[in-house]
Design a protein around this nucleic acid. Structure first.
Lengths: 160, 160
DNA sequence: GCATCTGATGAAACAATGTAGCAATGCCCG
DNA sequence: CGGGCATTGCTACATTGTTTCATCAGATGC
């Protein structure tokens, strides 16, 4: 399933995304007394440079191309760390990961819009969706914990 | 990731689910001139017996235990067929499949409620969620095509 | 009936994704 | 400086999914 992204979107300044993401991870590590190791830094940078979700092995390859190639296991561990700390998201329908540039409220509901043409993936917050989902779940006596909300389609730019 | 289902829910008459599912697939195959082969029948039955999403290889094992063990590739092909025809759903967050007992409207939005304790997975329809999701997507200029809406949590029975 | 054509299955190798277990390393802290 | 702990490296493995080609069964036309 690789290479579904025909044209990675390089239309804006990724440097801003990367520096923002690095500022966030540095701040969070300082604040919570966690270690911002070289590998964590490299993975976070690589993720933040892409608005297309990256698979674990794709990350291994990219890091390998730019320096020493880390073992897959280490990358998975870093990804677990990033996801746990809210610095990245797992995109289930792609088996891939996406950097998250902004903090989320605890029970905030986020929807991912995944372009099937260019791969570009955006987060969208929606109070309305969150409310409706909670309502639908509660109507079934279901206690929601984690939400996977991913919509595949065509992004604005790919529609011209 | 296997065995997350602690206690498969066997609280109601699966025979009804199975016979309903088989009636649906028979009707659909007749209507569209498709072939309801033995393997398709076996996979559909195995799926319909479970309200816990089953992985492809788990299906292979189950079919193997009950008769001749089909090659994984064949099971994947049947699963593709079932999903394409709307007789089953793929649960992305589990890499597994769930029988679908009822027809869906073309643009109907379905949410899956997946119990993390017993694995039981239910479909819930919600017009409100569909409307809000469409609105959120359109606000981004995004044209939605396929939705993956999966909520993990605890089902009513597991909450006592 | 018989050739043929098409869709479905069988089989084996492979690719991609994810984990387990243990050793080694580096960092903090007393 | 030494012990404890988090992190990483490494190897092997488990799971999930695909590619490719051969075979088989059912329909179709003659």
């Amino acid at each position: 399933m690789p290479g579904s992204a025909a044209s990675p979107p390089d239309h804006h300044d990724h440097a801003a995304c990367v520096s923002g993401a690095m500022a966030r991870i540095e701040h969070l590590c300082t604040q919570k007394g966690m270690r911002l190791t070289p590998l964590r830094r490299r993975v976070m940078e690589a993720l933040a440079q892409s608005h297309v979700p990256l698979g674990a092995y794709e990350l291994v390859d990219r890091l390998g191309a730019a320096g020493e190639r880390p073992p897959p296991m280490s990358v998975y561990r870093v990804l677990d760390f990033l996801v746990t700390e809210g610095l990245a998201h797992r995109i289930e329908s792609r088996n891939a990961f996406l950097a998250c540039g902004h903090a989320h409220d605890k029970d905030e509901v986020v929807v991912f819009l995944i372009c099937e043409q260019c791969g570009d993936t955006r987060e969208v917050r929606s109070h309305a969706v969150g409310r409706d989902l909670s309502w639908a779940a509660r109507a079934e006596g279901f206690e929601p914990r984690q939400r996977v909300l991913e919509i595949a389609g065509r992004c604005a730019r790919c529609r011209e």
